[in-house]
Design a protein around this nucleic acid. Structure first.
Lengths: 186, 186
DNA sequence: CATGTTGTGGGACGATCGTTCAGGTACCTT
DNA sequence: AAGGTACCTGAACGATCGTCCCACAACATG
C-alpha cells in the first residue's frame, strides 16, 4: 500500500530540503565561495557525510539550491507585478518598495540570487532554472508589450545589481523616479 | 638621482601587471572561484611564490584586478556613450552592437566583470572601484537627464546579465528594440 | 668594494577541501 | 521472523589550498 509514505524516504526528503535551505543561508552569508560540504553540514546541523549522501556532488547541491531559489523568486516577482498592476499609476511605488526591501533587509538573499544567476552563466545545466522567473513574467503580458516588459525587467536587474554596491542601501524614494521612468509608456 | 627608474622596481612592476592580466584571464576562463595563487602563477608563467610576493594576499590580488578591470570598463563605456550620442537617433544601433559583442566574442570578459562586481557587493573596499564607471558616466550628463541615464544604465546591466544565461548569445537585432525603448525620451 | 634593498623561486607546513568506505540503524516487504 | 532497502555517520584518503621561510641573484647606494 502507498497510502502512507515510506517513513525513511519521508525523513530523507525532509533532510534534503533542510540541506538546501542551509546552503542558501551559507550563500547569503559567505557567498557561493563559502559553500563546502562541511560548512553546509554545520549550518544544517547534520554530519558532513549527510550532504554527500543526498547530493552526489557539490555541483548537484548548487543546482538544487538554484532551482529552489528560482522557484521562490518567480512567485515573488509574479505577485509583485500583479500588485503593481492593480495599483495602476501607483505601481511604481509598489516596485520601488520591493526593490528597497531587496537591497535592505533582504540584501543577503539578493546577493545570493545574483551569485547563483552568474553561476548559471557558466553552467548550461543551470540556465533553464535561472530563466524560469523570466519566462513566467514573459507569459504574463500581451505580445505587443514584450519590448516594454523586457526593458522594465532589465532595468529592475540593473537597479538591484547597482544597488548592491552602494555603501548604504538606496531608499524607496530614491528608486521611485527611475522605476517610474522605466514603467512609463511611450 | 631618480632620472632612471630603479631597474628592479621596473621589472617588478612589469611582473605585477602581468600577474593582474593573468588573473583576469583566469577569471574569464574559470571564474573567481578558479583564482588561486597556483593557477594565476601558471597562467602568468611565474613561480607560485611570485604572486604572494607582489600581492600580500589573494584578496589584494583580486582587488588589484578589479581596479584594473573597472578602469578599462569605464573608458570603454565612456566612448560607447560618446559614439552613440554622435549618431543621434541611430545611437541604439551602436549600443546594441556593443552589447551583442559583450555577450558574444567577449562573453568571458563580461562574466568576469560581473563576478568582480558581485565581489564588490561583499567587500566594501572594492566598491569605489566598482562604482567608478558609473560615476564617470553620471558626470557626462546634465543633472536633469540623471533619471533617464540611471534607467538606461540599469537597463544595460540587466540586458547583459540576462544575456549571459541565454543558451546562445542574443544578436544585435534582437537587442536593438529594447535598447531603443530604453533610450527613448518621455 | 661593501652594504642595504628589491625581486626570485624552490620547498615545505598546516589547514581544508571533495569524496569514499564500511559499519550501523530504522523501516518496509514478504 | 527474515531479508532487503534506505538512510545515517565516524573515520580516513589524497589532493589542493594559502602562506611562510630561506637562500640567492640583481641592482642601487655609500
Amino acid at each position: 500500500m502507498r497510502q502512507q509514505r515510506d517513513g525513511r524516504k519521508a525523513r530523507g526528503d525532509k533532510r534534503r530540503q533542510e540541506i538546501i535551505e542551509a546552503t542558501l543561508r551559507v550563500i547569503e552569508r559567505d557567498g557561493v565561495a563559502g559553500v563546502t560540504h562541511r560548512t553546509v553540514a554545520a549550518e544544517a546541523g547534520v554530519p558532513t557525510t549527510s550532504t554527500t549522501y543526498h547530493f552526489s556532488s557539490l555541483n548537484d547541491l548548487l543546482i538544487a539550491t538554484l532551482i529552489s531559489c528560482a522557484q521562490d523568486m518567480a512567485t515573488e516577482v509574479y505577485w509583485m507585478i500583479d500588485r503593481a498592476r492593480s495599483r495602476g499609476s501607483r505601481g511604481a511605488d509598489e516596485v520601488a518598495a520591493l526593490l528597497a526591501a531587496a537591497l535592505g533587509p533582504h540584501r543577503g538573499r539578493t546577493m545570493a540570487e545574483y551569485e547563483l544567476y552568474l553561476l548559471a552563466a557558466r553552467r548550461p545545466e543551470l540556465r533553464p532554472a535561472a530563466r524560469r522567473w523570466l519566462d513566467v513574467l514573459t507569459s504574463m503580458v500581451r505580445p505587443d508589450d514584450l519590448v516594454a516588459l523586457r526593458a522594465f525587467l532589465a532595468g529592475i536587474d540593473g537597479l538591484l545589481i547597482q544597488g548592491l554596491i552602494d555603501d548604504e542601501p538606496p531608499k524607496a524614494d530614491e528608486l521611485r523616479p527611475v522605476v517610474d521612468h522605466l514603467l512609463q509608456p511611450r
